[in-house]
Design a protein around this nucleic acid. Structure first.
Ligand SMILES: [Zn+2]
Ligand SMILES: [Zn+2]
Ligand SMILES: [Zn+2]
Ligand SMILES: [Zn+2]
Lengths: 140, 140
DNA sequence: TCAGTTATGGAAATGATTACCATGTGCGTC
DNA sequence: GACGCACATGGTAATCATTTCCATAACTGA
């Protein structure tokens, strides 16, 4: 399974790092095109899929089912607290959950256990000044 | 917002209780039709949506994005450990997670916090006798 | 250069879910 | 019981993210 660091793949990874929070495939595609980087939507999906398989991105699903991506921080597996209003996302400490997952799996005799944990809420700022969720401008 | 307990709505709720584990809207629809209960797919979706809003079912999403439903046990909010192979699902104790979620949310200044937690793995039995995931027959 | 593999991207397909809308049903009223 | 209206149903068509197809392009090693 060779891996060619093509212009497109590098562009996707780069564009992903330029985004503050979680971003969808389609948003990324638009952003790239807007930057004058011609790339097919299919290729964006493929690149994200590959990044996911190789563990370079974290993926969450929003209520609609759309997948949102975010470059994974260097220190590995994380979970996030995401504002439903503005999209602001913050990595949180989840050691307790990690331990719990291990525990439960062991107790129940399950193997190859995976977990997804998603926390959503309304952030401090949005409680005061409700914002519309937009990929372009998320307050940092 | 009145609530008429129509033939169809009662049938959906009943069919849902007849299923061992999590079930999709379409599976439910097929099961109902197979039982000679004529009902529109649209109606099944509406009924499940209503049950969800009123907190009578738990919902999870599988990798494909398909929504799976399960009647919520009387004792309220639960999380499940689901076998990726056969679909066997088991409610697990998640007090640790509940507390963690509260904690994190409070610390970060978020309000109206919601969480989704999904545990998947391969169950004891499936490690020995791999089964194909099928809604119809899930070992209990 | 040549062949073989890998990557790209437009268009068409997929598949769950939702929107529309004309029709049907429950139910309180007269 | 008949009437009227709000609520419910269900077929079909639309939506929409994602995937599949497939012909073409780019890359790599010999
Ligand atoms: Zn916010
Ligand atoms: Zn984790
Ligand atoms: Zn199993
Ligand atoms: Zn919980």
């Amino acid at each position: 399974m060779p891996w060619r660091p093509t212009r497109q793949r590098k562009a996707v990874l780069s564009a992903l790092h330029d985004c503050a929070g979680f971003t969808s495939a389609q948003e990324l595609h638009e952003a790239l095109e807007a930057d004058g980087i011609p790339i097919g939507l299919t290729t964006v999906y493929r690149a994200l899929h590959a990044l996911d398989r190789s563990g370079q991105v974290d993926v969450v699903r929003e209520k609609s089912g759309e997948r949102l991506y975010r470059p994974r921080p260097a220190d590995g597996h994380r979970h996030y607290l995401v504002c439903r209003d503005c999209g602001l996302s913050t990595a949180v400490d989840a050691d307790a959950v990690e331990r719990w997952a291990e525990d439960v799996a062991g107790t129940m005799g399950f193997a190859e256990v995976e977990h997804t944990v998603e926390l959503t809420g309304v952030c401090d700022r949005c409680r005061v000044t409700p914002a519309v969720r937009s990929s372009a401008e998320q307050h940092s």
